[in-house]
Simulated scan of single mutants.
Amino acid sequence: MRTISLIVPCYNEEQSINIFYDAVAKVFESINKDTERYQPEYLFVNDGSSDKTLPILKELQQAHPATVHYLSFSRNFGKESALACGLDASTGDLVAVMDVDLQDPPELLPKMINLIENEGYDCVGTIQKERRGQGRIRAFLSSRFYGVIDAISEVRIEPNARDYRLMTREMVDTVTSLPEYNRFSKGIFAWVGYKTTYLTYESQPRAAGTSHWSMMQLINYAIDGIVDFSDVPLRIATWIGGISCILAALGFIFVFVRALAVGDPVAGWPSIVSIILLLGGIQLFSLGILGEYIGKIYLESKHRPKYIVKEKK
């Protein structure tokens, strides 16, 4: 019998855990209807929840000690750290990453298993057709983000790709071998390569609760993804600085020639102040881009762990 590890990050998801377990258990009953081929290994990662997530995980583990396991962080480290922890702890022949809110339909698992076992794929990812329940602004920014990162990154990241995917042990071992502290999983999964295909599905409503991602968190996540997988922003800052210098030199030449020809420099302090503010803004913008990359280097140089597991079972 082959084992499938299911990595499930949880942050204040007390209402969704049992619903998720029951739904996935039904899928495995269907998969093993004729013959028991696959055994699930549930790896719930409690990312510093402040509600009853951990007590519920303990109860679920006690009820199903052979298949359910949990790892609880000492504080909230973020979803990327929870994914890394789950991948590190997984032991299955195949490894799936899923959201506990059931927006990732577990009914796709049989098809994903078939594509890996019979079609020779190393990874089967998922793409959400549309994002129901999201505001138009958030949906627009999300689509623009994928367009931007696809244009400037050295690897292709599928638009609207979810974290929900099934991978072989070989691919997971490669992903976990990457030592970086700053992680953008969608980019890492694409960067390591391997034969990958995608399944498309209609967006699903949350099984319970509400999303914990604010607009600012999503924007910061997008910035992390761009900085982690492209140095194009640094090049843009370089080009902006170079063009500004050229324009400043041309402006100086114009003022000098005009002074020689007319005998009086161009008057007007408002225009001068505007130019100074423009150049100052460009400089601060470029420094901000540079600071993002320096900040990433600073965090990497500390060699701190990506997460701290306080309790596990």
Results as ranks from 00 to 15, higher is better:
200 T>N: 08
227 V>P: 06
281 G>R: 06
134 Q>L: 09
62 Q>F: 12
68 V>A: 05
307 Y>C: 10
200 T>M: 10
275 I>N: 03
77 F>K: 12
79 K>Q: 15
120 G>K: 10
147 G>T: 02
105 P>Q: 12
135 G>W: 00
251 G>P: 05
283 Q>D: 05
97 V>D: 04
62 Q>V: 12
173 D>I: 10
180 E>F: 00
141 L>V: 08
4 I>K: 01
167 M>H: 03
247 L>D: 01
194 Y>M: 12
256 F>V: 09
218 L>Y: 03
127 I>C: 05
8 V>L: 11
190 A>K: 01
137 I>G: 02
57 L>A: 09
7 I>Y: 07
92 G>D: 11
278 L>Q: 12
299 L>R: 15
80 E>Q: 15
208 A>T: 06
252 F>G: 07
236 I>G: 03
174 T>W: 01
189 F>K: 01
133 G>K: 07
8 V>K: 09
193 G>D: 02
162 R>I: 00
250 L>C: 13
2 R>I: 13
211 S>T: 08
77 F>V: 01
35 T>R: 11
197 T>S: 11
130 E>S: 13
25 A>N: 14
310 K>V: 05
89 A>Q: 15
262 V>P: 05
229 F>L: 06
312 K>Y: 10
139 A>M: 00
39 Q>L: 12
131 R>Y: 14
164 Y>Q: 07
97 V>K: 11
104 D>L: 04
148 V>Q: 04
243 I>H: 03
147 G>R: 11
240 I>P: 03
203 S>R: 04
15 Q>A: 13
134 Q>W: 11
65 P>G: 15
213 W>F: 08
185 S>M: 12
240 I>S: 03
71 L>F: 15
199 L>T: 08
248 A>N: 01
224 D>M: 06
95 V>E: 07
281 G>K: 06
102 L>R: 06
159 P>L: 08
230 S>H: 01
51 D>S: 02
134 Q>S: 08
291 G>C: 03
3 T>W: 10
109 L>Q: 07
266 V>S: 07
235 R>K: 11
115 L>D: 14
262 V>H: 01
30 S>A: 10
47 D>L: 03
99 D>V: 04
46 N>I: 13
232 V>D: 00
68 V>K: 02
159 P>E: 10
305 P>I: 10
313 K>N: 15
310 K>H: 10
81 S>N: 05
299 L>K: 13
90 S>W: 00
205 P>D: 10
93 D>A: 15
267 A>Y: 01
304 R>T: 09
11 Y>S: 08
188 I>H: 04
309 V>D: 08
145 F>Y: 15
169 R>H: 14
75 R>T: 13
117 E>C: 09
106 P>T: 01
133 G>Y: 00
144 R>H: 04
197 T>N: 10
173 D>T: 14
188 I>T: 14
253 I>D: 01
95 V>C: 14
12 N>Y: 00
32 N>V: 12
224 D>Y: 05
105 P>V: 09
240 I>N: 02
141 L>W: 02
268 G>R: 13
53 T>M: 08
53 T>C: 08
157 I>Q: 04
111 K>H: 09
95 V>F: 09
189 F>Q: 09
232 V>C: 06
24 V>E: 04
131 R>A: 02
130 E>M: 07
237 A>S: 10
39 Q>H: 09
144 R>P: 01
140 F>W: 10
3 T>E: 14
208 A>K: 09
264 D>H: 14
64 H>C: 13
95 V>D: 04
77 F>L: 06
105 P>C: 11
100 V>M: 02
38 Y>N: 07
32 N>G: 13
